[in-house]
Simulated scan of single mutants.
Amino acid sequence: MSTPSADAVRSAVAAVSDPELRRPIGELDMVRDISVEGDVARVAIALTIVGCPAADRIAADVRAAAASVPGIAEVTLDVGVMTPAERRALTERLRGGRGREMPFGPGTLTRVIAVTSGKGGVGKSTVTANLAVALAARGLAVGLIDADVHGFSIPGQLGLVSADGTAPQPTRVDDLMLPPVAHGVKVISIGMFLRRGDGEGPLGAVAWRGPMLHRTVQQFLTDVFFGDLDVLLLDMPPGTGDVAITVGQLLPNAEVLVVTTPQAAASDVAVRSGLVARQTGQRVIGVIENMAAMTLPDGTVLDVFGAGGGAAVAEALSQPGTPVPLLASVPLSPNLRTDADAGIPAVLAHPGDPAARAIEQVAATLAQAPRGLSGRSLPFRPR
């Protein structure tokens, strides 16, 4: 057998993916010197930051990749850290040379969908979390921003909350934040930045007014590195307050899903959230009725919140030539609730549940046209 070459080892190591950036470490300039002496490969890599949370996994994957080269029997690994200049170059490359520019505004190739409601307590966050996971399961690259700063719940519903009630903080590479990934969805939430002062009791409350809310949402859109997304979902706070106005200003290109319950008290208010979104230029693409009637094992239909609210909202938001469809009526479901509390969305934990099937149908409808290039300028020039 011929002696393995350093080039062969470098090729294998360079293909290892950074689990946070989701790109090969060779592309990220993390591979350093590589040499081969007999059947021993000596490999040097540089992590992005000191204390990188993915350090152990990257090291193990690099060792395995180098050892997979025919003729290599032993691997010695030297792990270093990028210099400040190298990190700046990396963040600039990740941003595509745009600097600290928000990448999801008009002209983006990412489909941006804001999930809104008129009132709280209609299950908007549960629907959003399940919809995000259902889209990711279909092979789409999905990001999720928990824009409900005061009432954040997405980290818990996606299983990102540990036993002490805290969620993992995003890894920071200079001014760039790498969002945690749950069930294939890249997630950011203010809940990831709150910690208990004494290690006990609930997380502190967020008591912010407009300017701080605006800055938080803007930072999530600008400084979180989601990479190339097919769909970016925003779990909006209920109502038509500061965050709705901020998102309307920053993302006038966003599409809007309105969530309501069948009850008139909820559906009447839900219409207002759609109207405000439309005033900012956003397009309402559908209504999801949650907590609709459920069928009990004996065939009895239980409609705790009445019926018809979703259809009423869809009709009220429809315009001549621009109908707003009722995309789904999601029935009341114990599984939907218990799975959310357990951090495993029902579309994964109980895919046969009627509520999970209804949300999956919405995902199927949205996935039919995830994003398009028609009318968009591409970064190519004729030669």
Rank of each mutant, 00 (worst) to 15 (best):
V304D: 00
D268M: 15
E200F: 10
L144R: 09
K186R: 15
P155E: 09
L378A: 08
S329K: 15
A355H: 03
P170L: 07
V217F: 04
A342N: 15
L348E: 12
V122W: 02
E200L: 14
P170S: 02
P179N: 03
S374T: 12
V287I: 13
R57I: 10
P24S: 05
L251F: 11
H214K: 04
V79A: 00
A64I: 07
E86G: 08
F380Q: 08
E86Y: 10
C52S: 07
T240W: 09
V304G: 00
V362D: 04
R22A: 13
A205Q: 13
A356C: 04
L229T: 11
L109T: 14
V161Y: 14
G184H: 11
E92Q: 13
V9K: 00
I288N: 01
G139I: 15
R283C: 06
R98D: 09
A6H: 07
V259P: 03
G107R: 03
A141L: 01
R278M: 12
G105D: 03
R42A: 10
I288C: 02
I49Y: 01
P24F: 02
R283N: 13
V31W: 14
A141G: 04
G26D: 10
Q263F: 08
R22G: 03
G343A: 02
T338H: 12
P170M: 06
V173Y: 05
K119D: 00
I190E: 01
D339H: 13
D146I: 10
G281W: 10
G299V: 10
P320Q: 02
T166F: 00
P70N: 06
A328K: 00
T83F: 05
R87M: 11
V269L: 00
S17G: 02
